[in-house]
Simulated scan of single mutants.
Amino acid sequence: MKVTVFMIIVGIIFLCIFVGLLTLIVRALLKYIHSKDVRQEKSVVRKSLGEALKVHRTQCKMTQEFVAETIGVSRQAVSKWENGTSDPSTSNLFALAKLYGISVEELLKEVE
């Protein structure tokens, strides 16, 4: 069976196209892999301080009453912090973060 110059050229063209497509796929995969941090950061939903406080309280399986008694405020104060009517003082914010087992920086990082 004779191999013509035309068949060789067609084969080389298909090989070049295949290598080019393979290169593009590898580049796209590498870019996707390296963008993991960006994707995770964007997936974090920003919330208000009250929402963040409530999320951490519920994750710790604590009631508003327990939190209030532990840090020495009323249950209504905790409720107002969580619904956004008021904000905790700096000392109470530190106490809440300590109670929830996180740093104040971590807590505030979640806030818009």
Rank of each mutant, 00 (worst) to 15 (best):
residue 3 V to H: 03
residue 4 T to M: 04
residue 7 M to V: 07
residue 8 I to W: 01
residue 9 I to Y: 07
residue 10 V to W: 08
residue 10 V to S: 11
residue 11 G to W: 01
residue 11 G to H: 01
residue 12 I to Q: 11
residue 13 I to A: 13
residue 14 F to L: 15
residue 16 C to W: 02
residue 16 C to S: 05
residue 17 I to R: 02
residue 17 I to F: 09
residue 17 I to T: 08
residue 19 V to P: 00
residue 20 G to T: 06
residue 20 G to D: 00
residue 21 L to G: 05
residue 22 L to G: 09
residue 24 L to P: 00
residue 28 A to W: 04
residue 28 A to P: 00
residue 30 L to M: 13
residue 33 I to M: 11
residue 33 I to S: 10
residue 34 H to W: 06
residue 34 H to D: 14
residue 35 S to R: 09
residue 37 D to C: 00
residue 38 V to P: 00
residue 38 V to F: 04
residue 39 R to P: 02
residue 39 R to C: 02
residue 39 R to M: 11
residue 41 E to A: 14
residue 41 E to S: 11
residue 42 K to Y: 01
residue 42 K to V: 02
residue 42 K to H: 05
residue 43 S to M: 13
residue 44 V to M: 07
residue 45 V to P: 04
residue 45 V to E: 14
residue 46 R to H: 01
residue 46 R to C: 06
residue 48 S to L: 06
residue 49 L to D: 14
residue 50 G to W: 11
residue 51 E to K: 13
residue 51 E to V: 10
residue 54 K to P: 00
residue 55 V to P: 00
residue 55 V to I: 10
residue 56 H to M: 12
residue 56 H to R: 15
residue 57 R to Y: 12
residue 58 T to V: 10
residue 59 Q to K: 15
residue 62 M to K: 12
residue 63 T to S: 15
residue 63 T to K: 06
residue 65 E to F: 02
residue 66 F to I: 02
residue 66 F to C: 01
residue 69 E to C: 05
residue 71 I to Y: 05
residue 72 G to A: 10
residue 72 G to L: 12
residue 73 V to W: 01
residue 74 S to R: 01
residue 75 R to D: 05
residue 80 K to A: 08
residue 80 K to T: 11
residue 82 E to A: 12
residue 82 E to H: 10
residue 83 N to A: 04
residue 85 T to Y: 09
residue 85 T to D: 13
residue 87 D to F: 04
residue 87 D to S: 14
residue 88 P to F: 07
residue 89 S to C: 08
residue 90 T to A: 08
residue 91 S to V: 13
residue 95 A to S: 15
residue 95 A to I: 04
residue 95 A to K: 15
residue 96 L to S: 04
residue 96 L to Y: 05
residue 97 A to Q: 05
residue 97 A to D: 10
residue 98 K to L: 03
residue 98 K to Y: 03
residue 98 K to H: 13
residue 99 L to N: 09
residue 101 G to K: 10
residue 103 S to L: 03
residue 103 S to N: 09
residue 105 E to P: 00
residue 105 E to A: 14
residue 105 E to C: 02
residue 107 L to N: 11
residue 110 E to V: 10
residue 112 E to Q: 13
residue 112 E to M: 08
